[in-house]
Amino acid sequence: MTEKINQVRVAFDNELSGAVTGDELEQVRVKFLSRNGAIAQLFEEMKSVPAAEKPVLGKLLNTLKNAAQGAFDERKKTLSQSKEQRTRSIDLTLPGRPKPIGTKHPLTQTMDEIKKIFMTMGFSVATGPEIETDYYNFGALNFPPEHPARDMQDTFFIAKDILLRTHTSPVQIRTMEQQRPPVREIMPGRVYRNEAVSARSLVSFHQIEGLYVDRGVTFSDLKGTLVAFAHQFYGKDVKFKFRPTFFPFTEPSADMYISCFLCKGEGCRMCKFVGWLEIMGSGMVHPHVLQNVGYDPEVFTGFAFGMGIERIACLRYGVDDLRLFYENDVRFLQQF
């Protein structure tokens, strides 16, 4: 029995010193230290040893067990330390593998954000053609023929009575022609104005227009809806005001102003030192417009509003030249 104990000790020492990986170490543990391992086996054999020899052999065996467990633990500890050292030799400061970063155009981002706010209020999105007829762009919107109101929007013509839409308002007419109230739509899109190109003006730009027609819609609802939008989009602290203006397709018409969000109304370059920014035009849909699409203005009322996306994006991002949006320099695009 003594010999057996010595054999196991030698075998254990050999195999432990030969184990360099975690797997090998585990094999050693299973072979010698587990419940069915060699050492456990020896304890099993102790049962059949004569009683007289038990104290001596028992002591020997216990010494082996404790020494083996100690040596194993020690070995395991050094092995995991060396693993840590190996890991440290990898230069973790190397950069990650580069990935291209995709970006949404700042104008689309602005438009999406506006759309999202109105969609949460129950508005749907509608679109229409950019090549339009005089009727949809002007006539149906209550622009009298030969009226100075038409000068408000210098027009590109394609043929007689065919033009590039000067605003997204024709989509109002198309939308109402296709459905009965309630109509609650927002209409984003490209529009065209015959103006000289400069940092502040382009021949085409984007607008987003909104329309709500139903029974009992009032000017008071118009104010509430647009103020709710402004508080969502520009922050809940902005102050607002509505001022009378003129659009042929709405009456009463109102320009909406908010307190300058940069200087909080103190006056700065962005608001041209007046403390207010004009952010959109709006008004109650003119009864003639409702009649033109076959709605009875005595039954239905509504409001419409519209804003220029480029202008809003300029204010938001501090862009002072509109042309940057169309140059699409990736160094510009990737900032948004």
């Binding site: 969609m119 209020m121 129950g122 749907s124 999105v125 459905q179 309630p182 609650r184 139903d214 009032t218 000017f219 008071s220 609802d221 104010k223 509430g224 809806t225 103020v227 709710a228 005001k241 509505f242 001022r243 009378p244 009463p252 109102a254």
Partner: peptide
């Protein structure tokens, strides 16, 4: 005075038509 018209902040939303919210 436009300023004196109440800014109505409560409105019912009509859900009688499906909303088109994605494209």
């Amino acid at each position: 005075g436009y300023d004196n018209v109440e800014t109505k902040t409560r409105m019912t939303v009509d859900f009688s038509k499906p909303l088109r919210t994605t494209s």
